Every structure is written in C-alpha cells, then in structure tokens.
Simulated assay, not measured.
Amino acid sequence: MLQSYNNNLEELTPNDALTILMDGNTRFVNGISKSKNFLSRVEETGSQQKPFAAILSCMDSRAPVEILFDQGIGDVFSVRIAGNVVSENVLGSLEYAVGVSGSKLIMVMGHTNCGAVKGACDHVEFGNLTGLLNKIQPAVTAGNAGDGEKNSKNDAFVEDVTRLNIQNSINSILQQSEVIKKLTEEGKISLVGAVYNVSKGTVELLGEQN
C-alpha cells in the first residue's frame, strides 16, 4: 500500500500518513517489521523522492525514525536536532517537505530520557550547546516538578518538560511559518506531536492533531 502511495502522493490524506507511521511502529514493537530491499529503493528513488511525512526529532542514537516507524529509503524526511527544537533552518527544511515535495504530515517527536531536556533542566552551559538548550528553557520554566526539584533527577519533571517542549516546538512552527500554518489551516497537512519511549520502543501521540 505504501508503494502505491509513494507513486501517487496526491491521493494520500494527512490521516493516512499518520496511520502509516503508527502502523509501522506497531510492527516494529511486535518484531514484525517488513522485509525491505534497500538497493531496489535506491534505484527507484535515485531520480526523485516523494516522502509522505516529515519528522522533526532528536538526534539521539536510540531514536532512528525510519527504523522505529518501519519505513525505508525515500519514505520520510528526517530532520534531527538535539531536543527537537525549532530554528530557521529547521523551518526551511519542513517547509520544503510539505510545500515543495508534497509531504502530508509533520510530526514533532521527542523521547523519554532525553539528554538535551535533562541538560536544559540542569541549566547546562557548554559552547554552542548553550544556545540550543536555551530554546528548551520555556518548557523548563513551565514544567511541573510536583513535590520534587526542578532538575534532571526528578523523572516526572523531565517527562513534563519533554512534553511541553514538543508542544512549544509545534507552536513555534505555526507561529514562525506562514507556509505551514496555511497548509494546516487548509487541511492539506497535519501537524502532530509524539513521544518515543526509548525503553519500550513505542510512540505515543500527544493531544489533538492540528
């Protein structure tokens, strides 16, 4: 089914794209990922690509999106940066995906036990990483520490900051990109948030999709 969608991307709906991703994660978690001929896909996609989705995720080595969503070469755009934060370059990449290439879905995916989030919680300063972690600080400030302290040793706080940071990235995308906002309002694409559990392999969707 995915192959036919790649050949006829205009027939794919945003909901179809999300279903393909989540079905792929179900296969991954259950150990029934589809057999893939990567060399064949190299030949098929050598002259053009039609990815059905774009995923903004963290650079963490435990969260390779193509694998955990059981996708192959040419199926998804993968934009990876520590803490899945938004920048001008990230926005440009996502705008290309949906505005030029025709992808139907943008997913912003954070993950559990995120080093970038923990670094932000502890107010780490280290070279150029400092500026990146500053983008997560609004989530740190708003995060609920419960009865614990606002630092990386408080697992509940880290989880809350992770989820808030994902939503903040979604808000930033809509606020800073007229291209994506317009396509979303017109129903041509969807923008969703998700959390990947690095211990279980599962992807959890957050809230309602835009």
Rank of each mutant, 00 (worst) to 15 (best):
T112M: 13
S101K: 09
C121Q: 00
V86N: 04
G110T: 11
G99I: 08
C121I: 00
V86H: 03
K104V: 06
N84H: 15
V90M: 06
V85G: 02
V90G: 01
K118D: 00
V117E: 05
H111D: 02
A82G: 12
A82W: 04
G115F: 07
R80K: 14
C121L: 04
N113A: 13
S93N: 08
N84Q: 15
V117W: 01
S87W: 00
G115D: 03
M109R: 03
G83M: 03
I106L: 11
N89H: 15
V100N: 13
V98D: 11
S87Q: 00
E95P: 10
G119S: 08
A120D: 02
G110K: 05
S93M: 00
E95G: 12
V108N: 12
V79D: 14
Y96W: 12
Y96G: 07
G83Y: 00
V86Y: 00
V86K: 05
G83S: 09
V100E: 14
V98E: 13
C121S: 15
T112K: 13
E88G: 01
V117H: 01
G119A: 15
A82N: 06
S78G: 00
I81S: 04
V85M: 09
G92P: 01
G119N: 01
S103M: 07
N113C: 00
L94P: 01
M107P: 02
G102R: 12
C114L: 04
L105W: 07
M109T: 09
V79F: 04
G92F: 10
H111S: 07
L105P: 12
A116F: 05
V85K: 04
E95Q: 15
M109S: 13
